[in-house]
Design a protein around this nucleic acid. Structure first.
Length: 521
RNA sequence: GCCCCUAUCGUCUAGCGGUCCAGGACGUAGCCCUCUCAAGGCUAAAACACGGGUUCGAUUCCCGUUAGGGGUACCA
């Protein structure tokens, strides 16, 4: 039997990093075993514009390279492809209603007419007595025919009749044996009472089970938060008379030791906003995009992370290949992924380690590709216009080559390119204070400017030689010259090699900038 | 409250009874390299939650305690 796994996001408008990790494990398991990975949209909650909220999720998957074999079409139009279409739960409600009716006819489900105040009172009483509150609905013991009749007259939520005194046991592929007593499980709601449109919509737990069966899912790999739902769902599978799939509950992705949910996340810090601004975002744009936050894939994409790095990081959060491997190419993971090596304990999201991995992946990219892929960032920051002319492209290539491993994110290209490409680059006040206003700096700058006046050619080797001759003649240390020249020509104290910088700028610009810097002293 | 899950350096993890005075990685600190910043090299500090068992022997198995997390909806 082929392995079939699935990921079922609800259309929230953004792709959550924790969700991606779950999807990734499903995808890997399917790929490892030559099976299928299915995407299903869990939109039983009605409301909201679905197509609009699904598109960013599909885009995120496409960016990460997680392809699905069945599910919504990539354009996010709301259509589906695959043998069991549609893959939107919102479009499958009739199936759920049919299933619920069959359960009721078979005596496995019943309508519940218990009022809310009544339930609240019972819950309170149970809590006072320190007993678990296990809801059992009004018509639990009414014969099926009578229930069907009453339901036709007065629709109400349909509940599953949980069998009494039964131990529900299953073997979780990550957690081994889990046992729960049926007497601690409430009768779960399968279908809601009719909504304002008169439709009785399925609840998540029920829709999910009906769909797992319909889509022939063999392995349900999901986050640990669903572990508590599992016994209930097993009961539904059994009542439906279908095969129960294998379950694997993977540990939660935490942030500061709590579930990394969007709700609990603090707003973007000044530092994080600063990073986005460095990418050319305005304060208003950042505020208007509530999908930009440390828990979303979009955030890392905008900052210039590589999908491979994000994937590698997420793979290692809760799974290991062996005792040492950290950098693990996706092909290796696809060939070796196993649920046995998934951790049981929740893990914390560590952005520093992600950043390190990002650097490792970036090192592997040829300079030309870095240039190519940083273009969107350069455009956003208005460092380049719509069309990239050959001259700018070759200058960018030189910048990227000179910057080397200093470029960790695509957005870093901006940091190195800006002082060179922009005519009106800014002088960092601190740098001016420390390097230009230092005693003797002006004299050094004038002298160096003169020393390079007649250099030809003007490349890294010749400026290097000129600087060292200048230093020797004046009895200085090279740092005495390098620092002020760097600040004079780029406005900043940090950057890649000075001689490469000078070469890329060209003699005229260098002299012009040095002269201008002298006016700041 | 009740149900369930979990517990190795700050963080991610290796460990499936002796190989562990616990290994790797990120981060941190120091040194080297060096025109700054990265990168690179070397070094250092840093953990088996606690208490009982089982065993010749427990980080590893069992029980309890503690702590953390998740779930307790006509949310997903």
């Amino acid at each position: 039997m082929t392995v079939r796994t699935r990921f079922a996001p609800s259309p929230t408008g953004y792709l959550h990093i924790g969700g991606v990790r779950t999807a990734l494990f499903n995808w890997l398991y399917a790929r490892r075993h030559g099976g299928q990975f299915i995407l299903r949209i869990d939109d039983t909650d009605a409301s909201r514009n679905r197509a609009e909220a699904v598109k960013p999720i599909l885009d995120g998957f496409a960016w990460l390279g997680l392809d699905w074999d069945e599910g919504p079409t990539k354009d996010g139009s709301g259509d589906s492809f695959g043998p069991h279409a549609p893959y939107f739960q919102g479009q499958r409600n009739d199936t759920y209603i049919d299933a619920a009716m069959k359960l009721m006819a078979a005596g496995h489900a019943y309508p519940d007419y218990t009022t809310q105040p009544e339930q609240d009172a019972r819950r309170k009483a149970a809590e006072m007595a320190k007993r678990p509150y296990v809801h059992r609905g009004s018509n639990r013991d009414v014969p099926p025919d009578e229930n069907l009749k009453q339901y036709r007259e007065k629709p109400a939520p349909i509940l599953l009749k949980v069998p009494a005194g039964q131990a529900i046991e299953f073997t979780d592929l990550v957690r081994d044996k889990v046992v729960v007593q049926s007497d601690t499980i409430r009768d779960p709601a399968l279908l809601r009472a009719p909504g304002s449109d008169g439709v009785c919509r399925a609840l998540y737990s029920f829709a999910t089970v009906v769909d797992e069966a319909a889509f022939e899912i063999t392995h349900v790999i999901r986050a640990e938060e669903h572990l508590s739902n599992t016994p209930t769902q097993i009961l539904i599978f059994q009542a439906l008379g279908v095969k129960v799939p294998a379950f694997a509950h993977i540990p939660l992705v935490q942030y500061k030791n709590e579930k990394m949910s969007k709700r609990k996340l603090p707003p973007l810090s000044a530092e994080e906003i600063g990073k986005l601004k460095a990418c050319g975002w305005t304060e208003e744009e950042i505020k208007s995009r509530d999908d930009l936050n440390i828990a979303t894939v979009a955030y890392y994409r905008e900052l210039g992370y590589l999908p491979a790095a994000v994937i590698n990081y997420l793979v290692r959060l809760g799974w290991s290949l062996d005792a040492e491997s950290e950098f693990i190419p996706i092909e290796t993971v696809k060939q070796n992924f196993s649920l046995e090596r998934v951790t049981k304990a929740a893990g914390n999201f560590d952005s520093q380690k992600l950043y390190w991995l990002q650097g490792e992946y970036m090192k592997l990219l040829p300079a030309a590709e870095k240039v190519e892929r940083s273009i969107p960032y350069l455009k956003r920051a208005r460092l380049i216009e719509n069309e990239l002319d050959e001259k700018t492209r070759s200058r960018l290539l030189k910048i990227v080559e000179a910057a080397g491993d200093r470029i960790k994110l695509f957005s870093d290209v901006l940091t190195f390119a800006a002082p060179i490409l922009k005519a009106d680059f800014e002088y960092d006040p601190k740098a001016v204070e420390k390097r230009l206003k230092a005693p003797g700096a002006a004299e050094v700058l004038r002298g160096f400017s003169e020393a390079i006046q007649n250099l030809d050619p003007f490349d890294a080797a010749t400026t290097d030689k000129a600087l060292h001759e200048f230093v020797a003649a004046k009895g200085l240390k090279s740092a005495d010259v390098v620092h002020p020249v760097r600040v004079a020509t780029t406005g900043t104290q940090v950057g890649f090699g000075l001689f490469e910088t000078l070469e890329i700028l060209g003699k005229d610009t260098v002299i012009k900038r040095i002269n201008h810097s002298l006016t700041l002293i």
